[in-house]
């Protein structure tokens, strides 16, 4: 029996398969054009000596090979890892500590104010945070140096000292982002049934034991998940560095994203910038895969 084309069409539209795809289509189209296609196109660009004003020339993997011999690339890579190694424990550690404080203080009066003041910096944008901290770290009139000198110390001029510049930016980043982790950890703590602690107390476990033997292990999934996410955002760092030091002094705080930005939009070497983007992507991919492998989170991502 043959169907009239029109009926065929309407039946097709109502079929579960077509319907399901149609609902995904608007998002899928935007995703394909503005997220998937750029990755492919970006890899293509990274195979060229691609200069908008001078034309382009296919050079294969030479952009990547050049990076390996580029001292500036290795410097940026080192600074990025150094930043991540400092910022991650700061963000996670302070976030966890604050979550414990607030959780420990229960629902006493004033708890709301304390939570709000810990969380609030997260809502500021990166430019505000950078302006505030550049001023706090100012070598002549900054609050931090003035107070450290006031108590008789001889502090380094943080943002102008090649040794201290990355730790200083990492510290400001910790202040900025720890509040968000605090909120996440606190939510995880509230998911733990009270009976767990009541039983532990009945068993005579002291607070230290309760903290390290019960609470921290129960929070492990949340902590590991946060570690991965914080790692990803740390490797992408740009705004704080661009605003607070512009990579200086010298190139002591030039991170990968800043080198990419300069290669692309200052030196107009788009091929090199695209290759830098892929190196960064690769690092983030490896960090994430290792992280999720450790957590064993496949089920969380895999759907039911």
């Amino acid at each position: 029996m043959r169907l009239h084309p029109r009926r065929l069409f309407s039946r097709l539209l109502r079929s579960r398969q077509v319907e399901g795809v149609l609902f995904v289509l608007p998002y899928g189209a935007i995703w394909a054009l503005f997220l998937l296609w750029p990755v492919i196109y970006g890899f293509y660009i990274s195979l060229f000596k691609w200069q908008p004003l001078l034309g382009s020339e296919f050079i294969g993997l030479k952009n990547y090979a050049n990076l390996l011999q580029d001292a500036r690339f290795w410097n940026a890579l080192r600074n990025t890892f150094w930043f991540a190694a400092l910022a991650m424990p700061l963000i996670i550690g302070i976030g966890l500590l604050f979550a414990l404080f607030i959780w420990g203080s229960g629902r006493r009066r004033g708890g709301g104010f304390i939570e709000a003041s810990f969380f609030w910096p997260y809502l500021l944008n990166v430019s505000i945070v950078s302006i505030i901290w550049k001023w706090l770290f100012d070598p002549d009139f900054g609050l931090i140096l003035a107070y450290l000198r006031g108590i008789g110390l001889d502090p380094p001029v943080f943002l102008n000292d090649p040794l201290w510049v990355v730790p200083a930016i990492a510290f400001a980043t910790g202040w900025w982002l720890a509040g968000y982790r605090m909120v996440v950890f606190r939510a995880a703590m509230e998911d733990i049934p009270d009976t767990v602690f009541e039983l532990a107390e009945l068993d005579g476990a002291n607070p230290v034991v309760r903290l390290f033997r019960i609470l921290i292990p129960l929070l492990k999934p949340a902590i590991l998940f946060s570690l991965v996410l914080t790692a990803i955002s740390s490797f992408r760092v740009l705004g704080q560095v661009l605003m607070m030091t512009d990579g200086g002094p010298g190139r002591a705080s030039e991170v990968l994203a800043l080198y990419l930005y300069r290669a692309g939009w200052q030196y107009l070497e788009m091929g090199r910038a695209a290759a830098l983007g892929f190196v960064l992507f690769l690092i983030i991919l490896v960090v994430t895969l290792v992280g999720f492998w450790v957590i064993g989170l496949e089920s969380e991502l895999g759907g039911r």
Partner: peptide, 15 residues
């Protein structure tokens, strides 16, 4: 979700 802005910045600019 893992694709960072940085890898897409150059191609997105041309797109």
């Amino acid at each position: 979700m893992l694709i960072p802005w940085q890898v897409n910045a150059v191609p997105l600019y041309f797109l």
